[in-house]
Design a protein around this nucleic acid. Structure first.
Lengths: 181, 181
DNA sequence: CACATTTTGTACCGTTTGGTACAAGATTAC
DNA sequence: GTAATCTTGTACCAAACGGTACAAAATGTG
């Protein structure tokens, strides 16, 4: 997962993957079928793990607090923290296969679908906020979700490019000023 | 340029590149040296062209109008418009080489540098706004620039993933609400 | 027209890619 | 303890990768 995360689907070579897994090639093929299937498994694990952080953020009392918690924990996870050797910057769903050769197009679309899925969860949390009265009902929840999802994607690009947690945290504070009311 | 833009540095194969250029491999090597050099030339042309749009936006009267014009034209260019066959979605500086094999690391860093450069231009425009009095002097221009640069990167990811111009335009309107005062 | 120069096309180079065949080694069952 | 099963390691496959040597063709120059 970490190798795919760091180098993307195409940039991760079989030797690098098998070395990181501590097994050799035939074992990997016996266990996963092929590289694409292995990648899907890695993505599933990534989503599962970051999903824990995501749900923790969404569990905040208000929609606004949920968004704030989400953005802050993303910055923390994507480019801050203790930063050991195994730490990978950025978001796997973004840098896994943004642009690639046409033979990897299925993977690219799959990642786009999962990003879209995340945005749906975001919108649903906003709508819940509207239902619970902590977010005005006349705001366009879809537009607001699209905005924060877009900003979130931008954070992934920024941290992949080496931005520091401090400066991104300031950008998050600006982003929170776009909150209605 | 379009082939690199669409498939990224590693995803663009020599046959695809030479076919698009209408020349064969030895001619390409005679003219550009190697693939990396060709990519740098393509990036330079891309920056030059989109730089025209960028400067046009920055020439608006106030800093706020400049940012608004920039974001709107980015949405227009990245995923809207007439959309012919040759139209490529997203931003080359983002999807050119976000994550890749370590043999392309120089290219990746080069793109990160150019994205950073764009952010610097943005910040300078904001500071000019402060000097000219259309942006409050107590706002953190660096943080504001980082925010809009991040959002801009997010737009690239969104449009690469297939988002429509309409929904992104709504997200832009939300982003503009983060403007101080 | 003949010569020198440059551009083009074909064929190749070594390397690396994702993916397998197959036999040796370890493990389990009886 | 022996036989059957499963896992592992080595070696290999065809294809595609980026990059080049070299000769044919086209061009320019006297």
């Amino acid at each position: 997962m970490r190798v795919f995360w760091k180098h993307g689907y195409e940039g991760a070579s079989l030797p690098a993957l098998t070395k990181a897994m501590g097994i050799n090639r035939p074992s990997m093929y016996a266990a996963f079928g092929n590289k694409e299937e292995l990648f899907r498994k890695a993505v599933a694990r990534y989503v599962e793990r970051s999903g824990a952080m995501f749900r923790a953020a969404m569990a905040q009392r208000t929609a606004r607090e949920a968004i704030e918690a989400l953005l802050r924990s993303i910055v923390c996870a994507a480019c801050g923290g203790e930063g050991g050797a195994g730490k990978v910057r950025g978001c796997m769903l973004v840098q896994g296969a943004l642009a690639c050769g046409q033979e990897s197009d299925r993977v690219r679309r799959e990642l786009a679908r999962r990003r879209c899925e995340m945005e749906v969860f975001l919108r649903q949390r906003l709508e819940r906020g509207q239902a619970e009265g902590d977010l005005r009902r006349d705001v366009d929840a879809a537009a607001l979700a699209k905005f924060y999802a877009t900003f979130q994607n931008g954070l992934a690009v920024q941290s992949a490019g080496g931005a520091s947690a401090e400066e991104l945290m300031k950008a998050v504070e600006v982003a929170l000023r776009a909150w209605p009311e």
